[in-house]
Nucleic acid binder design. Structure first.
Lengths: 148, 148
DNA sequence: CCTATTTATCATTTCATCATGACAAAAACA
DNA sequence: TGTTTTTGTCATGATGAAATGATAAATAGG
């Protein structure tokens, strides 16, 4: 669902966001239980993608570069994993659209939609504040029973 | 979400189920667009797991070993991919249960449930018949808006 | 200016998945 | 019986993600 790197990224951002100022990679590595050198690279990728900003030197470290309620899980994970943005056929036919659906298309669509929605609408702020979901962004996914 | 091997397995079973009698690995490889030798191994794994049965020799091939409306996608994919059966924390804390939930737990739970439900309740028969979902097994997943 | 601290970058290793190729075992059929 | 067709099994090679290790560049503080 989400790669090891993506998971590190998610946990790292969550940790950094909860600290006050710049957080060192070492501190993050401990909190996330990730190998330091490897985490370093992950953090740097997030910097290049504008998710984090970094400061070198003695008082340096990483901090979040954008408002937390603006930062979606998708934005954090995207550099490492391709979360299905367009409809990805579970049977892997490559192309699978509404006009020419595969046998599993409709079955899978509802699930895929809920995954996409989750990553694109949930923010880091949502997770930290422990809210159950962003208000006013409710979406209902209905599996089974009932026609189109 | 599902590995290459798991995808091959799914498409292979779907193809075999639609043929009348035993289907040769060669025929399946063509239909599935998978490398023959590799597919061979995938099919054999499915045989060992009781999903398919095989017959050697001139009139041999693979056929489905169980009733199609009994065969869930989970059963087909499970030998290759671990579909989250128990609650798997998206933050990868390993253990993440209701009693000691992580910050993302409730957010992720609804999505994870829908995925699990999809793989465990959808059968090969459902896909072949093009039904939208097994009747009477509807499940509603609500994201956002509203309290527990 | 020097030194400690921290991020940035590169080269290399490990590992699982995917894939290829060759050969053995069984079964049908002439 | 022997030949062909099929599955079964093993050994080996690519490939990419994950992880490791070493070194360079920047920055703050004494």
């Amino acid at each position: 669902m989400v790669s090891q790197s993506g998971e590190y990224a998610l946990r790292a951002v969550l940790h950094i966001a909860q600290q006050g100022g710049p957080t060192t990679a070492e501190s993050v590595a401990d909190a996330v239980a990730a190998p330091r050198n490897y985490l370093h690279k992950v953090l740097h990728v997030l910097v290049r993608h504008g998710v984090l900003k970094s400061l070198r030197g003695r008082t340096g470290g990483f901090s979040v570069a954008v408002p937390l309620d603006t930062l979606t899980l998708h934005a954090v994970v995207a550099p490492f994993d391709a979360i299905p943005s367009r409809q990805r056929c579970i049977l892997g036919r490559g192309e699978c659209n509404e006009a020419d659906p595969c046998t599993a298309h409709w079955h899978w669509k509802a699930v895929a939609d809920s995954i996409t929605k989750f990553f694109r609408s949930t923010t880091i702020a949502d997770l930290i504040e422990g809210r159950r979901a962003p208000a006013g962004q409710g979406v209902m996914v209905v599996l089974g029973g009932g026609e189109p």
